[in-house]
Design a protein around this nucleic acid. Structure first.
Lengths: 216, 216
DNA sequence: TTGTATTTTTAGACAAGTCTAAAAAAATAA
DNA sequence: TTATTTTTTTAGACTTGTCTAAAAATACAA
């Protein structure tokens, strides 16, 4: 098994890899609120365990094995988030930090039963896909509201920003997962977007439109 | 908050305190499968945090604060055990080690909601009482089968040995929590006990009778 | 292409928690 | 009461994961 610190590194590297290809020491340090020198040390250990590819000064990427571990951590995280919202009735902006703690419980049998108990959910409360026990999940074809044509209709299905403040804002506007919306207009001055939802018009900023994902 | 190691020491000291008064370094070392020298070091730290009373060569006892922390860990452990059995359908002999890992998740709000989700259970799957969030629990008046008179009737309500092998044995004999039994006879030769349960006679050894607790 | 700025790594140190071996204290036996 | 055994503590070392400060490599600008 891997230590808690190792798991956090693998998760961070996975997350950063989705954007860039090779991940730099500094990026990881920023993500984990630690120092680049600490990252160098840890990345060495992970390379020895064949969980990452690493050559000095060249950045890091996950090996197949490392990716599998990372996806397993993400699976655990998202299943616990689902549990916290669906069973314990926490709000979607409250569960991230709790799940961060619970994701390190790695008994396979426990996680599989938790999964079954909840009916094998495929998405967490923020719309992110939950990998199965082999790390497979269907890649979602979600688009930011800011990227679609006027008059497009879609269903709110995910967010790019997981911060509590963003989620709370969406909640207040009732822009929650599952809601049907139509993009009515983009204000050319500031790129604000006007949506129609349940026969009401809502205006959201460019920033919000960028972080709100819909399925068409 | 306390570290994982600190929590394990507090729990061990609490457990050992139930039998003896002051707990010795060696006892703690045995309980935690570590060395007496390590115990001395850790006990010093706990004393500095005012969680234990300690004077060199005199053994250790929990302070009020230390006891409260210990009871909180036990609360978490037993609530998770209940969850694993009642919701995830694990067997009572499978949950101890899993709960050992989960008990260190210490977010108060989460534990309280878990408690509510399960309907505020008062006993874990082995019949042990679950302390409330202030550490209070009702002391149970349970007696080992080996200690009661012939012809006494009672309800199986707890165990003193929590090992998987003992629990599996009881399960196989159907001697599970809630069953009504009558002590029919004690064999003078080896102190084996003959019980009646659901109109059937069952013989159990002195050892088993010693570790099986009933409410009268 | 040379010099400067930035990024990354190395070197050495520290805290937590553990260990072994040896010393000190307490308990037990003669 | 003195000697022996057992328990407990001390001293010093090791591992994991972190840090700071300095050195090395790379990237960027003129």
């Amino acid at each position: 098994m891997n230590t808690l610190a190792e798991e956090n590194y693998l998760k961070a590297i996975y997350k950063l890899s989705l954007a860039a290809g090779n991940v730099s020491t500094n990026q990881i340090a920023a993500e984990l609120a630690t120092k680049a020198s600490s990252v160098t040390d840890m990345v060495r250990k992970l390379a020895e365990k064949a969980l990452v590819n690493y050559t000095r000064y060249q950045g890091v990427s996950l090996t197949k094995a490392g990716e599998k571990v990372a996806l397993n951590i993400i699976r655990r995280h998202r299943l616990w988030e689902y549990f916290l919202v669906e069973k314990l009735h926490f709000k979607w902006d409250e569960v991230h930090d709790m799940a961060e703690e619970m994701e390190h419980i790695s008994l396979t049998e426990l996680i599989d039963r938790l999964d079954a108990f909840m009916g094998h959910p495929t998405r967490d409360p923020h719309g992110d896909p939950i990998p199965d026990c082999d790390g497979n999940f269907k890649v979602s074809e979600l688009k930011p509201v800011s990227s679609v044509e006027v008059n497009t209709a879609g269903v709110i299905s995910g967010v790019r920003d997981h911060s509590a403040s963003f989620l709370q804002y969406l909640e207040r506007q009732q822009l929650t997962i599952g809601k049907h919306i139509i993009i009515k207009e983009v204000i050319s001055y500031d790129n604000a977007v006007i949506l129609e939802m349940e026969n009401t018009q809502i205006q959201i900023s460019r920033d919000v439109a960028n972080n709100l994902l819909i399925a068409l």
